[in-house]
Amino acid sequence: MRRLFAFIAGSLFGTGLLISGMTDTSKVQGWLDVFGQWDPTLAFVMGGAIIPMAIAWRLTIGRNPALGGLFPPRPEAKIGRNLVIGSTLFGMGWGLAGLCPGPSIASLSYGGIGGTVFLLAMFAGMWFAPILRNQLDNALPAT
């Protein structure tokens, strides 16, 4: 059952990304391009996604997940170095190619060779990240 609903959630996610135009890198770069032809579509996608999600968070209060277990606890509201460094690096890559992790999988079947190359490079980055993070933590321990 967990697998089935994970599959359903993934399917909906992919459908939404495709319909919203978020697998089109020019729409993402258009949103980030405030000094060019600015494209506000991404704001509509974010707004459209946040509304059902906010309702879902409301519904978690006083309940448990339908398939058992516990809802993920609220993380400590701590703004660490890794959050800032990571988000900045991610944003640079996001602007450079116009792809983020979700759409890179959703568009894999029609993204051509470039889409596959992006995904492989992203996998490599994800594999390398924990090593890099350990190096950074050893060199400059967080206070």
């Binding site: 967990r2 609903f5 994970a6 359903i8 959630a9 993934g10 399917s11 909906l12 996610f13 459908t15 939404g16 990304l17 495709l18 319909i19 919203s20 135009g21 978020m22 729409k27 494209d39 506000p40 579509t41 991404l42 704001a43 509509f44 996608v45 974010m46 707004g47 459209g48 996604a49 946040i50 509304i51 059902p52 999600m53 309702i55 879902a56 968070w57 519904l59 978690t60 448990n64 997940p65 339908a66 398939l67 058992g68 277990g69 516990l70 809802f71 993920p72």
Partner: peptide, 24 residues
């Protein structure tokens, strides 16, 4: 395109809601 964005966004939010409320 904005309307498609809003509809697609809603489906993305629904996906997140399913994954949260059912799978936790």
């Amino acid at each position: 395109e904005w309307i498609y964005g809003l509809i697609g966004g809603g489906i993305i939010g629904l996906a997140g809601a399913v994954y949260l409320l059912i799978n936790g």
